[in-house]
Design a protein around this nucleic acid. Sequence first.
DNA 1: ACCTGAACACCGTTCAAGT
DNA 2: ACCTGAACACCGTTCAAGT
Lengths: 192, 192
Amino acid sequence: MTTTERPRRADAERNVKRLLEAGAQVFASTGTALPLEEVARVAGVGKGTLYRHFPTREHLLAALLAATFADLADRAAQLRAELEPMQAYEAWLAEFDRMPAGYRGLRSVLVEALGDDASVIATACGPMKEETARILADAQAAGMVREDITANDLLAVVAGLPEGLRRGAEAHPWLGVLIDGTRTPASARSTR
Amino acid sequence: MTTTERPRRADAERNVKRLLEAGAQVFASTGTALPLEEVARVAGVGKGTLYRHFPTREHLLAALLAATFADLADRAAQLRAELEPMQAYEAWLAEFDRMPAGYRGLRSVLVEALGDDASVIATACGPMKEETARILADAQAAGMVREDITANDLLAVVAGLPEGLRRGAEAHPWLGVLIDGTRTPASARSTR
DNA sequence: ACCTGAACACCGTTCAAGT
DNA sequence: ACCTGAACACCGTTCAAGT
């Protein structure tokens, strides 16, 4: 996002591209614990080159996930524009919950990133978090969702739903449980 | 639990005891990623001795957590005996949610263990899971909790609540969100 | 200015030698 | 029968030499 795009030597640029392709491939097959040595090998570059461009595993993961996060932020904005507050809220959480499927370990990486604002991945999540905050605020303003929760924690809790819950393609009840649980309680609606 | 307690040579027994003490100490300060080499060093035994008695990190963790899990199972049984179904349900989940506090990484270890019946730690969780199943069944039989959830997934979802939610000592709203979300929906109560 | 890969460090795991 | 610690393996990280 705010990365300064300095001009790069042609070979450096080519290597970054190869590393991202190799990273995506190894990430898809191995998950978030992807062996960095293998990424360099698949990319056909030295390990030092990987380290020069991506000083930590989180930097590589952030780069690999950046496009997905940006797309998701756009999708959230779209849902907010098209749907009523509570429908947008439910639809967006369902999309967010679906995202980490198939990437081993991504849920816990997301939980960690959402719990540490200083994390490199948290930065990549920024626009997504802002859209979530808007959607949540709309639903709260409409009196549909309890006021004592934050967008950041909401995403963290959804991301923290265990991977194993999805048996085959069938939907699990837990996202619905969470959404129901965040509705404004009947007691609060009548007394206020 | 079902471990066959063979007689052991006196030095072996002493070493196991030392390893468990050292393990508890390192676990408390480092969390679930405790360096095994350090455990052996603190215990004053060779690394080979650690590996002989605890072939994997999970075996060591299971041994370290066994007493806590057994106590929790007893506590669950006690709550079930003393309270009305829904109160027992809420009180038990609150106690279970409090347990991993202070042990870095324990929540995700629990999530993983609850997602894999073959895991060594899952075995240690057995009695706790059985009590949870009874408490859940009671609450469901009383018509208070939705029927489409299982005890195992319930524990996994509670364990999966992010560590970072607890800022200081103040309670977080998310356990309440989950409990509310698992209540039998008003629609189901009226139509059935 | 950037790349390379040997070298280093860390730590989990194995095993030959010892008691 | 069990213990020990050197040796090995794996992999992340650094850096001197090269282009």
